[in-house]
Design a protein around this nucleic acid. Structure first.
Lengths: 229, 229
DNA sequence: TCTCTGAGTGAGTGTTCACTCACATAAGCA
DNA sequence: TGCTTATGTGAGTGAACACTCACTCAGAGA
C-alpha cells in the first residue's frame, strides 16, 4: 500500500523530526484513504479505526480531535522527503537562467505532474476540503501548486523582458498557469470526468497549449470591448 | 435575496411544471446557501429549517430525505428559464458558421461566464459535491460546462478543417477548454484563492490565452520525448 | 355550516456520532 | 526487580443527528 510507504518514509527520514509508530502510520493513511473517498465530514472515526486495524481510542491518543487529523495532512505533505526534493527542484527551475520559455514551462509542468502523481490521495483530500476549510487554502497554493511564488513571478518577468511571452500582468500569468493546472488536475483526478482521450499524451498537449497561450504571435488579438473600460 | 428570486422565477414560469409554495422556495434556497458554505454533509436539517424560517417537519413534507434535496438541485438548474435561454444560445453558437475561431471562442466564454455568474451558489454546491456524489457528475458536464458536446466537437472540427486551430484530437481540445474554464472557475469561486489581479479583465485574458493556446503559430513546438512513444 | 384535504408543525425517537476513561500492556531505566 | 512513562483499548457517554407522527389550521367545495 503506497500511502503507508509514504508515511514510513516520512517517519524514517532523518531530516524531519517526525517519528511515528506503526499504528500511527496505519491510522493516518487509513484516514486519508477514506477522506478521499467519502469526504472528511462523512467519514466516521470508528470507520477509520476499523480500516487501520486499531481501537478507536488509539486514534484520539494521537489526534485530539478528528479535525486535527485533517489539518495535520498539509504538515505531513510539506515534510515528506519526496515533496522536499520536488520543491527544491522547482526552486532551482525558477532560479535557472533558461534561454527559452518553452523549456522552462515544460520543466515546471513535469515537476508538478510528478509531484501530484506521487501524492494523489493526499492532494485529493486537500483539494476536496479546501472550499470548506479555509485554513487549508494557503497550504494548497504554497505547497501543492506553486511554492515560492515570488521566484516564479521573477522568472516570468525575465521572460517578459526578453519578449518571449505576452505582456500582461505577471500575477495574471500565474493565475492562468494555476488555472490550467488546477483545472486539469480537478477534472481528471478529483471529479473523474471521463474523456475519450489519450491520458499519456494529455499533459504534453497541456504544455503545448500553455506555451502557445502565453507566446507572442503575429495575429494580435484585441481584448473585447468590456475589458477596455 | 437572489436565490429566492431564482426559485420564484422557476416556479412561476409557464414552460416548467414546477410549482412551489413560498415555504418550499425558502427551504431549497436556504439549503443551497448552507450547502455551499459548509458542504452537504456538515449541514443539518434543523439548521436549514431555522434559516428558512419553517418547522423541521416541513422539510420532510417536500423532500423524503436530505439527500433528495441535494439531488434535486441539478433538476432545478436545468429547468430554470435563464438556464434554458443560455443553453439555447450556446447551441446556436455551436451551430453558427463563424468565420473566425476568435469570435467563436469569445462568444462561448461570454455565454458560460454569464450563466455561471447567474447561478453561482447552485453551481458551487454541484462542483463541491461532485467528487462525492458521482450521480451529479453527468449533470455537471452536460448542463454546466458544455451542454451539447457533440455539436461543440463538430464546430471544432470545422475550425480544424479551415486550418485555424492546431490539429490535435477534438476531444482533447474540449478537455483543454473545459480544463481552463473549470480551473478558472474553481480557483476564484470555489476555493476563493486570492490573486492580486483585476478580476474584470481576467476573463478576457482567459479568452486571449485559450485563443492563443489553440491557434496555429509559426514557432512549431515539438512534443516532449515521452509523448512520442 | 360541515367536511375534507394538504401544508405546516415541533416534540419525540432510535441511532450514530466524536470523544472519554479506567484499565491493560509494553518499554525504558534504575 | 520495581517504578515510571508511553501506547493501546473498547465499553461507555452525552450530544446531535435525520427522520416520524399526531396534531393544528387554513382554504375549498357543497
Amino acid at each position: 500500500m503506497s500511502l503507508k510507504n509514504f508515511f514510513k518514509e516520512l517517519s524514517e527520514s532523518e531530516n524531519t523530526n517526525i517519528t511515528m509508530t506503526d499504528k500511527q502510520i496505519c491510522i493516518i493513511s487509513a484516514a486519508i484513504e477514506i477522506f478521499s473517498e467519502k469526504g472528511y465530514s462523512a467519514t466516521t472515526t470508528s470507520e477509520i479505526a476499523k480500516k487501520a486495524g486499531v481501537g478507536e481510542g488509539t486514534i484520539f491518543r494521537h489526534y485530539k480531535t478528528k479535525l486535527e487529523m485533517l489539518l495535520a495532512i498539509p504538515n505531513y505533505l510539506n515534510k515528506s522527503p519526496s515533496s522536499k526534493s520536488h520543491m527544491s527542484d522547482l526552486t532551482r527551475i525558477f532560479e535557472s537562467p533558461y534561454e527559452k520559455f518553452e523549456d522552462f514551462i515544460k520543466d515546471v509542468i513535469q515537476n508538478r505532474k510528478e509531484f501530484i502523481l506521487k501524492n494523489t490521495p493526499l492532494i485529493k483530500v486537500l483539494v476536496q476540503e479546501v472550499p470548506l476549510h479555509p485554513e487549508l487554502r494557503d497550504t494548497m497554493s504554497e505547497s501543492v501548486l506553486f511554492p515560492n511564488m515570488e521566484k516564479l513571478i521573477q522568472a516570468i518577468d525575465r521572460f517578459k523582458e526578453k519578449g518571449q511571452i505576452i505582456n500582461i500582468p505577471s500575477e495574471t500569468i500565474v493565475h492562468l498557469l494555476l488555472t490550467s493546472m488546477m483545472g486539469y488536475f480537478f477534472t481528471i483526478f478529483i471529479a473523474s470526468f471521463h474523456f475519450n482521450v489519450d491520458y499519456d499524451k494529455e499533459p504534453d498537449y497541456l504544455a503545448q497549449y500553455i506555451l502557445h497561450g502565453l507566446s507572442i504571435t503575429d495575429n494580435k488579438i484585441e481584448l473585447s470591448r468590456e475589458a477596455a473600460l
